[in-house]
């Protein structure tokens, strides 16, 4: 029997979407629903797991299996599910508060274990669901209801944090660039291991315009560096700016013209570099000194925890050679018989 062609509708649940009108989450949801039919997995073999926050509602809107858990702990639930059911396609949707603050510990551990799960982290640099406190990715000096004189703590750089935890796949996308977002999510899905995708997402109610310099037509060509594997790190309206390395330090240069560098001097992007140094350098490129990179920073093949855990089970069963009977187990050790 020929399988029916799936459509976006097959992945859309009957629940009303309850995010604020104009929220960046709508675009992300729509993008995910749109590409799902192409991934070759039927809705019933897909599970979306989330924590708490605006992002936490995401599973309710997907017509797949969905698990809306507690604050920050989604990696724990997702790990237990994936290790026990490795054949399922498991996705984890989180936000900057859920993943970077209350769930920071679980995030770094799922990344170091490299469980085969796709993590989409919506970063709006604010607490939306609790109505507008600063988050661990808010810039220093952020004035919010909880920090009327400005926030004091330095923000996390999610990509650097993920790389520091040994993530095998690290990428960034922006909610307003849907074509690129699609590409990045497809790449994350194709990667075996934990895929960490930071999505710049606008909270139009509590932190409107946090990423406008990366989304507005007038500025984005000069503020966004599109990463493409095998292509030089070139950006700018006229494609005349690039990144070169001066010793250990990246530098923005102009290509051609008087005093400009040659295109061949520009660093060529390689997402498969085995060590994380290069990707970490990219993750540290920050506006306004640098354009901010979007796309896949790092994608390397590493063994996954779920696969290895199941392999140990298989090997243990094989070593027992079919002799693992409960009766034998209960009667093992020093036993004695009372007549």
């Amino acid at each position: 029997m020929e399988a029916l062609k799936l459509t976006k509708k097959d992945f859309t649940s009957d629940q009303d979407v309850r995010w604020c009108p104009g929220c960046g989450d709508y675009a992300i949801l729509s993008t995910v629903q749109k590409i799902m039919p192409d991934l070759g997995v039927p809705p019933h073999d897909v599970v979306f797991v989330s924590g708490i926050g605006c992002s936490g509602r995401f599973p309710y809107y997907m017509n797949t299996y969905g698990f809306h858990s507690i604050h920050g702990r989604a990696p724990g639930f997702a790990t237990g599910l994936k290790v026990s059911r490795p054949e399922l396609s498991v996705w984890l949707v989180s936000g900057d508060g859920d993943a970077m603050s209350i769930g920071g510990n679980h995030l770094i551990h799922i990344l170091r274990r490299n469980v085969d799960i796709n993590i989409l982290m919506f970063n709006n640099r604010i607490y939306g669901l609790t109505k507008g406190q600063y988050s661990p990715t808010s810039e220093i000096g952020k004035k919010t209801k909880s920090t009327p004189m400005g926030s004091l703590d330095r923000p996390f750089n999610p990509l650097s944090l993920a790389l520091g935890a040994g993530a095998s796949f690290v990428a960034r996308a922006v909610d307003r660039d849907l074509g690129h977002l699609q590409e990045v999510i497809r790449a994350a899905n194709a990667h075996k291991g934990t895929s960490f995708v930071e999505i710049y997402q606008n909270c139009n109610v509590f932190n409107d315009g946090a990423f406008s310099q990366f989304t507005e037509k007038e500025t984005k060509d000069d503020t966004v560096l599109y990463l493409e594997h095998g292509k030089p790190l070139i950006f700018g309206k006229n494609k005349d700016k690039g990144i070169v390395m001066r010793g250990a330090h990246p530098e923005v240069v102009t290509i051609g013209g008087e005093g400009g560098v040659l295109e061949s001097d520009i660093v060529v992007h390689d997402e498969t570099v085995p060590t994380p140094h290069y990707a970490f350098m990219l993750s540290q490129l920050q506006y306004p000194k640098f354009p901010e990179p979007v796309g896949v920073l790092r994608s390397v093949e590493q063994p996954t925890y779920d696969e290895m855990a199941n392999e140990q089970i298989r090997r243990a069963k094989e070593a027992a050679n079919g002799s693992s009977s409960l009766e034998k187990l209960l009667n093992s050790g020093d036993t004695w018989t009372v007549e």
């Binding site: 698990f67 702990r73 724990g76 790990t79 237990g80 290790v83 026990s84 059911r85 510990n105 551990h109």
Partner: peptide, 21 residues
């Protein structure tokens, strides 16, 4: 399957995730 989690919370959460599965 035994999973030594990063903390007590991840321990119970992973168990619940497995139950769901």
């Amino acid at each position: 399957v035994t999973f030594q989690a990063e903390d007590e919370i991840a321990g119970v959460c992973s168990a619940i995730g497995a139950s769901y599965g």
